[in-house]
């Protein structure tokens, strides 16, 4: 993840480079370090370095890293011709390299030659069955083809070995949600919460999955996770505020018949008030919509 200060530095450098102020190499290094995806800029500035003999030879061994970076950026921008040249150059330099093999597989992917790419990755995996990047490429490829069940299969196989990889868990959770397999998705979000217990988006997503599943117990749990999201974000997350309101409304509706005492509505009214305040501040035009919605769930009279 990119921190705010790093992002502003990156933007600063980008403007400088765009206006011809130099520092292209520093910019490219920073992009690489932050794993930012600014392919068009990387392609433009990287290519200008690669085409300039003097600038290129100044890089020394780093030249090949730049080739790789530009190749990936070019593929991202659908400039297959440039990517092809870069990869050919790399192949000449590193004949038996796994990393270049990966790039070649990606090139096949860009062309849409799925079976060939699959075969290429399979070959690479035979040499080194524990290459995380190639496993992830295969997942991405299945996703690009819209093959959700295959994605799930690959991800599960991957997670069986690399079970501490939280990005993979997140991907799997999102796929499960899109397949409406909420129970499995909930498991994945639990895993994510375990990995990083204080990241609010995971709490929020978990609460949403639980709310979607419904049922009194799940709704109550969902309410708590919405509350913890509010807690972690300092009440600034609109989605969580809505979530609390909806959860409590749903719980009241469910428990009405069973003669239970009403939920403590302190949290609920507070959430509604915060929502109203937030809307007044940031989107006064939409305030009537909000009050109408809240009236629907009987939070404001």
């Amino acid at each position: 993840m990119v921190g705010a200060s790093e992002e502003s530095r990156l933007n600063c450098l980008e403007i400088q480079v765009d206006n011809g102020g130099g520092g292209a190499w520093e910019y490219l290094c920073l992009v690489r370090k932050l794993k930012a995806r600014r392919s068009d800029k990387v392609l433009k500035h990287g290519l200008s370095i690669l085409n300039d003999h003097r600038a290129r030879s100044k890089l020394g061994g780093e030249e090949w890293t730049l080739y790789e970076q530009v190749a990936i950026a070019a593929m991202d921008c659908q400039r297959v011709d440039i990517a092809k040249d870069c990869i050919a150059e790399l192949r000449k330099q590193f004949p038996g390299s796994m990393r270049v093999g990966r790039l070649e597989g990606m090139l096949l992917e860009v062309k849409g030659a799925w079976p060939e790419a699959e075969k290429a990755y399979q070959r690479l995996l035979e040499d080194n069955p524990l290459d995380q990047v190639i496993h992830k490429r295969k997942v991405a490829m299945a996703k690009a083809q819209g093959n959700a069940s295959v994605v799930v299969e690959y991800l599960r196989k991957y997670l069986e070995i690399f079970m501490a990889d939280h990005d993979a868990w997140r991907e799997l959770a999102e796929i499960y949600v899109s397949l409406q397999m909420y129970k499995q998705a909930a498991f994945c979000y639990e895993e994510l919460i375990l990995c990083q217990p204080l990241v609010p988006p995971y709490h929020l997503a978990y609460a949403e999955v639980l709310y979607t599943m419904g049922g009194l117990e799940n709704l109550q749990t969902a309410k708590m996770y919405y509350a913890s999201t509010i807690n972690l974000t300092g009440g600034k997350n609109t989605r969580a505020l809505y979530g609390v309101c909806l959860c409590i409304a749903a719980i009241n509706q469910l428990s009405k018949g069973r003669n239970k005492e009403e939920e403590s509505s302190e949290l609920q009214t507070l959430a509604a008030e915060s929502l109203v305040k937030d809307y007044k501040l940031r989107a006064p035009v939409k305030l009537p919509l909000l009050t109408a919605a809240l009236r629907n769930v009987k939070l404001v009279s």
Partner: peptide, 17 residues
């Protein structure tokens, strides 16, 4: 730890409001 979160969230929201 979550049941405690409800109360804390109330406090946070009270402050926010």
């Amino acid at each position: 730890a979550l049941p405690k979160m409800g109360q804390r969230a109330e406090e946070v929201l009270r402050k926010f409001v």
